[in-house]
Amino acid sequence: MRILILGAGGIGGYFGGRLASSGADIRFLVRPSRAEVLARDGLVVRSPLGDLHTPVTTLTAATAPVDAVLLACKAYDLTEAMEAVAPAIGPSTVILPLLNGVRQLDMLDARFGRKHVLGGLCHIGVTVNPAGQILHLNTLQRLVFGARSADQADAVERLFEAIQPGGFDLALSPAIVQDMWEKFTFLATYAGMTTLMRAPIGAIMAADDGEAIMREMLDECLATATAGGYPPRPDAMAQMTSSLTERGSAGTASMFRDMARNGRTEHEHVIGDMLARARKAGVPAPLLRLSLANMQAYEAQRSGTAAG
């Protein structure tokens, strides 16, 4: 199965590198500067589960259809990414997006047609160091995907068989959109609060009203998810509540870490989209509103569009 991976950063590089080293037919669609690094050094992963150093095949432009496209870009690059992969989308190509949130499904459906677009998510902690090496920060390496309609079932099974040799934790989900909404609900709360408070979970819990405010933010996201038809299941609800209120936790969302290094963030795709859905459903969301304004002010200052 011919698989094109857009991006060789943390997520695309980690999963794609594992697949390439297993002998899968993988090509990375990357910018010329990244292609130069990969041609010179190969793809390097530093992981507590075992390091990886493998040569990979790269493209700087897609030219022909493939069987599957794995999108591993940041949400703010999605419009550009869709144009980049368009030549690779044939009549039977499936697209597996591994982005945060759920807005990407609507965007990809509108661009390529719903029949091409699967649901997917991953749980992994990765970053890229200045040398271009991928650093795996923990032992999580889970990739979950599934069909969004019955006519995708055969393609999903073929893709599962093709990427199973990668050696990471792989699962097919019969309810992938529900899974994505549960992660979205957690992440909007997690990112919203850690960026708003400029602090990890444990520090927020140490504040007098920290837990109460965290739970209020979660309630806004839960009400929005429920209004959209995706209330979290009991196990997911218990897990996200435990993580968001863990005393002493050093946990921060990747959005907070992007913010700490003065980088671009996915705030519009995560916090902004959750707020937009809350407003459409008539759900009061004062903390989401405050959190989004905080991130928009940060972006204005970071990008130089605000005085000072």
Rank of each mutant, 00 (worst) to 15 (best):
G7Y: 04
G10D: 12
G10H: 13
I11E: 01
L19Y: 12
G23V: 08
G23E: 04
D25F: 10
I26Y: 06
V30M: 05
V30L: 10
P32Y: 12
E36D: 14
E36T: 07
A39C: 05
A39R: 15
R40N: 05
D41T: 10
G42R: 06
L43H: 10
S47G: 13
D51E: 14
H53R: 15
V66R: 00
A75P: 01
D77P: 06
L78Y: 07
L78N: 04
L78D: 04
T79Y: 08
M82T: 07
E83A: 11
P91A: 11
P91I: 01
S92N: 12
S92F: 01
V94C: 02
V94Q: 01
R103C: 02
Q104S: 14
M107R: 15
D109A: 08
K115A: 13
P130F: 08
P130W: 10
P130C: 11
N138C: 11
L140M: 04
L143V: 15
D154V: 00
F160E: 03
A162K: 06
I163L: 12
I163A: 10
F168H: 11
D179G: 13
E182I: 08
L187E: 01
T195V: 09
M197H: 13
I204M: 09
A206G: 07
G210T: 09
G210V: 09
R215S: 13
E216F: 13
L218W: 10
D219M: 09
A227N: 05
Y230P: 01
Y230A: 03
P234M: 11
A236M: 12
L244F: 11
L244V: 09
G248I: 04
T252R: 13
A253I: 03
M255K: 04
R257V: 04
N262F: 06
E266T: 04
H267L: 00
V270D: 04
G272F: 15
M274E: 08
L275H: 13
K280L: 12
G282N: 02
A285E: 14
P286D: 04
P286L: 07
L287Y: 14
L290A: 14
L292W: 09
N294A: 07
N294K: 07
G304L: 09
A307T: 04
G308E: 06
